[in-house]
Design a protein around this nucleic acid. Structure first.
Length: 920
RNA sequence: GGGCGGGUAGCUCAGCGGUAGAGCGCUGGCUUUACACGCCGGAUGUCGCAGGUUCGACCCCUGUCCCGCCCA
């Protein structure tokens, strides 16, 4: 084994081994009675390339699946990809643009062909990339949301909802994305806050010539669609306007003054409001109340249409300027001032969304939401971290109907046909050939497609074969866990719950695990423009700074982004490996909404992988000449170090098990990390050296058995988190006969079921650790060279401690590079003519020791004073507490007792330290 | 306007009613035959601010100020 672990080659080798061995496959065998564990992947977009978000999802999910698989569950992790309507269409349109074409040049059919072609090229790429992370998906079951079975499921769902009256068509004010030229659901519109805009005032002249009214607006161009001017019915200032009309200055139209208490806040602005029913939600509602005409003034691309008179053809923002100028020319402008406002933007294109009146398909949500609320309320579905349930409830309780039609070409066509001879709309599972109403042949399918999230909502059961009653559906639905980012709680999770309950009559999963979003190490969102995108593959395989910069430049990063990249990662990334990246991502608390990924941290876990590698190298070397193998039984050693390390191992396994169960993967991975590094490597391996070199056959045998047992066990415990390196090592560990051929199909180690904590061993070993620690501190602080042995005179009245120090004398001497001499007469420890000659002293609980002939007086004084200060501070706190009668009375006895004991110990320590200080 | 989350060591973050923790960074020493991607030491915090509850508060409550996100 080389000195350094290099993940690159090893990871792909083992991954291939697992995949070709069929270890990822879930079983549909009729005789298989194992409990199932199912998790459906949040399908990445077909156009996507692996980013940290995917890496994070994949890691968490893979840990859950591998853990369950090792626990003996029939585990199914369903992989798949999403057709991602808008996103994909935009990508392909961009490609076309480079060829100087638009989708209209190709026509719908050719365009869709082109997208499929692109899908074939790029669709598999993201799945290949997930494999690089170690994802143990059941690949042959991969589903694409536009696969024929998925199409069938989508149609079935649509038709059923339509038949149940839950899908309907309606004309209302919708969110229009003028760039993508499609309607958006409310969720796809993001509000950009605190944008500086202008509030523009202008006057409408009264039609009867009797003066004017002044209105304010941030969108002057919309006045071209004004069909009313509203005032508050109780506003005395405008009583004279009741029943009057104003004249539109640009289009030939008389506009009524209406009274509306709901729309108008008399305190705001002039107290007169212009009303544009076709382009503002509040005005739309007002229009409905008053039966106002709705005049659409925009074309679908955001330019002004024929209703906008002289402004026709202008872009909406140019029209704004033009309207202001013209109003000025007519002497109607009344000035403008700065105004902070909120702008609705398309999540996809970023363009400002235009409210427009349009006929679209909607899903009635209230009836679907009610059971979804209940399922979380009654605990059928558990959301973790639990705070998110509040957000979930709030959204579902205030839910609006969902606009599901999109004016795109790429997506599931809406299975509705319009008849040219009658009004009937035919909605059908099969492609319709005749009108379902009049039977006439002149029908035309709806041009629109469905919102991507409509098919995603069916994911947990459509992927298992629904609406067919398949074995998979029967066996694996409902799934157990749904792991995803909180950003799609509404988009996806809530909708899956609603759809699952509606179509399957059962929740789609029983736990929702929400993780934070990965950001850069400053906590800023990763973005191509900022140049702070960390590509998981670069982290896994390594990249030079030049490569990172080149990539960022190609992706369109700004100069500041490039600068950041150059200064933050001047040396680029080493090939840290997937396991290191996985551990890093796992180490962040899922409670946190932000995972500020730090490369230094990845490096730390790369180092951990190397540590594990070398610890194993050591263990395997030591075992080389012996016939000891890892066994399935826990050894029963006698030596303290062996007993101790087993106890600590099982303690760590226990923490890991609860962490895995509670979705605290940070705690689980942390427990194993610290066990391996701080206890197994730093203490146990060092302890094993003198033991294995002792010549004591019994000791050697039990130490070998313990060593290999701990290693083999901790590898299995780490496997879900670091699958590759654990396999690489595990394969080399000598094991029991008929051991499985891969660690991934071995059993996950259980904690305290297998072994009890050995409290006595832990307590005794703490004495050893403290003693060795004190010796090392003295050596370090007094610059005693490592080669110089230190003689240590010690004393204790405590029988237990005496026993331990006697028994572990060799260990301590080896670890501390010292020589221990018990001194029966404690007075000699203070006697400058005996042991206390140029001596350093230390005081551990119940134990005192003097180390003669080593000190530098100044340093020792300094050190003692530092210690003394600490002791006094602690003692002060304790004595204040104990001096408080109500503490002694009211605090639990154990707490009071402990304080008493600690205080006694500290007093003794203070006394010794003072004595030592005085004798310097 | 409403809601949620956060403010703990230089940085990124855990933690929790009983004397403050990790990783990185900083610092001193070490070619210790598993590992310098290492080993052994050391330093570092009025736990945002102000009240309150409690024998005891970083932790619970109230108010307040910042930061972020979501919804309207």
């Amino acid at each position: 084994m080389p000195k350094q672990y290099s993940p690159t080659e090893s990871e792909s080798r083992w991954y291939e081994f697992w995949e070709t061995s069929g270890f990822f496959a879930a079983s549909e065998e009729p005789g298989d009675t194992r409990q199932t564990y199912t998790l459906a992947i949040p399908p990445p977009n077909v156009t996507g390339s692996l980013h940290m978000g995917h890496a994070c999802r994949t890691t968490f999910e893979d840990v859950l699946c591998r853990h369950k698989r090792m626990q003996g569950y029939n585990t199914l992790w369903v992989p798949g990809i999403d057709h991602a309507g808008i996103a994909t269409q935009v990508v392909v349109e961009r490609q076309l643009k480079q060829e100087g074409l638009t989708r209209y040049d190709l026509g719908r059919e050719k365009f869709i062909e082109r997208v499929w072609q692109w899908k074939e090229e790029s669709g598999e790429r993201i799945l290949q990339q997930l494999r690089k992370m170690g994802a143990s998906c059941d690949w042959p079951r991969t589903k694409f949301t536009m696969d024929p079975e998925m199409v069938r499921a989508v149609r079935e769902a649509f038709v059923r909802l339509y038949e149940e009256g839950l899908i309907y068509r309606d004309t209302r004010l919708v969110n229009w994305d003028v760039e993508s030229q499609t309607v958006l659901s409310d969720l796809e519109v993001e509000q950009e806050e605190n944008v500086e805009g202008a509030m523009f005032d202008f006057a409408y002249s009264l039609a009867d010539g009797g003066g004017e009214v002044v209105v304010s607006t941030t969108r002057p161009e919309t006045m071209l669609g004004d069909t009313a001017v509203a005032i508050h019915p109780d506003d005395g200032r405008y009583r004279h306007l009741h029943g009057k009309y104003v004249r539109h200055p640009f289009v030939d139209r008389l506009i009524p003054v209406i009274l509306d208490a709901e729309l108008v806040d008399p305190e705001f602005g002039t107290g007169v409001v212009k009303v544009t029913p076709a382009h503002d939600p509040n005005d739309f509602a007002t229009g409905k109340r008053h039966g106002l005409e709705e005049i659409n003034i925009f074309n679908l691309d955001g330019t002004m249409n024929e209703s906008s008179g002289p402004f026709q053809g202008l872009d909406r923002f140019d029209a704004r300027k033009a309207v202001e100028i013209e109003l000025g020319n007519l002497g109607l402008a009344r000035g403008s001032k700065k105004h902070m406002m909120t702008l609705p933007r398309s999540q996809r294109s970023g363009t400002i969304v235009e409210p427009m009146i349009s006929t679209q398909w909607f899903v009635k949500m209230k009836p679907l939401a009610a059971p979804a609320i209940e399922a979380v309320q009654d605990g059928t579905i558990q959301i973790l971290p639990p705070e998110w349930s509040k957000t979930y409830f709030h959204w579902l309780r205030n839910i609006q109907d969902w606009c599901i039609s999109r004016q795109l070409w790429w997506g599931h066509p809406i299975p509705a046909w319009y008849c040219e001879d009658c009004e009937h709309v035919t909605v059908s599972r099969e492609d319709a050939t005749a009108c379902g109403g009049c039977g006439g042949p002149s029908i035309r399918q709806d041009d629109d497609v469905l919102d991507t999230w409509f098919s995603s909502g069916l994911w947990p059961f459509s992927t298992l074969g629904w609406p067919e009653k398949t074995v998979a559906l029967e066996r694996f639905y409902p799934t157990q866990d749904m792991e995803t980012g909180y950003d799609i709680l509404f988009f996806w999770v809530a909708r899956m719950i609603m759809m699952g309950l509606h179509f399957m009559g059962e929740v789609p999963f029983t736990r929702v695990l929400l993780a934070g979003l990965v950001t850069d190490e400053r906590g800023e969102k990763m973005s191509k423009v900022k140049g702070n995108v960390v590509d998981p593959l670069d982290v896994i395989y390594g990249a030079t700074n030049e490569q990172l910069v080149a990539k960022a430049e190609k992706a369109g990063a700004k100069n500041s982004g490039i600068k950041y990249l150059k200064s933050t990662y001047p040396d680029g990334f080493a090939a840290y490996g997937a396991d290191a990246l996985r551990m890093t991502l796992l180490s962040y608390s899922p409670q946190s909404r932000r995972i500020a990924l730090s490369i230094k941290r990845i490096e730390g876990y790369r180092n951990f992988a190397n540590k594990l590698w070398n610890a194993s190298r050591y263990a395997l070397m030591r075992l080389g000449g012996s016939s000891t193998k890892a066994s399935q039984q826990c050894p029963q050693p006698k030596a303290l170090a062996n007993r101790w390390v087993l106890s600590r191992l099982y303690h760590a396994l226990d923490v890991a098990a609860s962490g895995l169960d509670a979705y605290r993967l940070d705690e689980a991975s942390g427990a194993l990390y610290h066990f391996v590094w701080d206890e197994f490597c730093d203490w146990y391996l060092e302890l094993s050296k003198p033991a294995l070199g002792s010549g004591d056959a019994t000791l050697i045998e039990e130490t070998e058995a313990t060593l290999v047992h701990v290693l083999e066990t901790v590898l299995r415990a780490l496997h879900p988190m670091m699958p590759h390196i654990t396999e690489e090592i595990w394969q080399r560990v000598p094991k029991w006969d008929e051991a499985p051929k891969s660690i991934m199909i071995s059993r996950f180690p259980t904690g305290l079921v297998d072994a009890k904590l050995d409290r006595a061993a832990e307590r005794d070993f703490e004495v050893v650790q403290a003693f060795v620690g004190s010796v090392r501190t003295i050596r370090a602080e007094h610059d005693v060279p490592r080669t110089q042995a230190m003689r240590i005179h010690w004393h204790t009245n405590d029988e237990d401690k005496h026993r331990v120090l006697d028994a572990e004398r060799r260990t301590i001497e080896a670890l501390g590079r010292c020589e221990l001499c018990f001194e029966a007469d404690p007075a000699k420890l203070d006697d400058p003519n005996a042991h206390f000659k140029n001596a350093a002293v230390f005081v551990n609980p119940g134990i005192r020791a003097a180390v003669p002939d080593v000190i530098d007086t100044e340093k020792e004084r300094d050190r003692l004073q530092r210690n003394l200060k600490k002791v006094e501070k602690e003692l002060g706190v304790l004595e204040k507490k104990l001096g408080n009668p109500s503490f002694v009375e009211r605090a639990p006895e154990a707490v009071v007792d402990k304080s008493r004991r600690d205080s006694l110990e500290l007093r003794e320590k203070r006394e010794r330290l003072e004595a030592a200080l005085n004798s310097l």
